[in-house]
Amino acid sequence: MSDKKHKSIISPLKAARGMGADKSGFHHWWMQRVTAIALIPLTIWFMFCAVGAIANASYDRALEWLSSPLHAVLMILYVIATLYHAALGLKVVIEDYVHKESLKIASIFFVNFACFAGAVASIYAVLLVSLKG
């Protein structure tokens, strides 16, 4: 029925069962932990190696550093793990607190898009620097 005032009487059991399990729970939970564990060494590398190498370096020196295949690959992995982890985590926060279905779907879409676009842009930048060098 399209009538907005449509009210239905359903049993508490029907409400509790809902539409059944979405089978996405484990995958989300697991990927959040996998990315978290991957981020431990990657963040240590980023803090000490990347920041240390780039912070006080000249522009040319920084470009040279990022052109090294090892550092370029680690930087791409770091960007993917960070933004994937962020997208998974923000989705949970939105689901916890935003209960208006349309706003919830829009917010999750926005977060996913922003993280995905951020990852693509970052990877493109790293490749640009790395392959040119």
Partner: peptide, 14 residues
Amino acid sequence: LDQLDDKFKLYRCH
């Protein structure tokens, strides 16, 4: 386990 593999039913536990 099938019935619980859901982002809300089980995994809303933080």
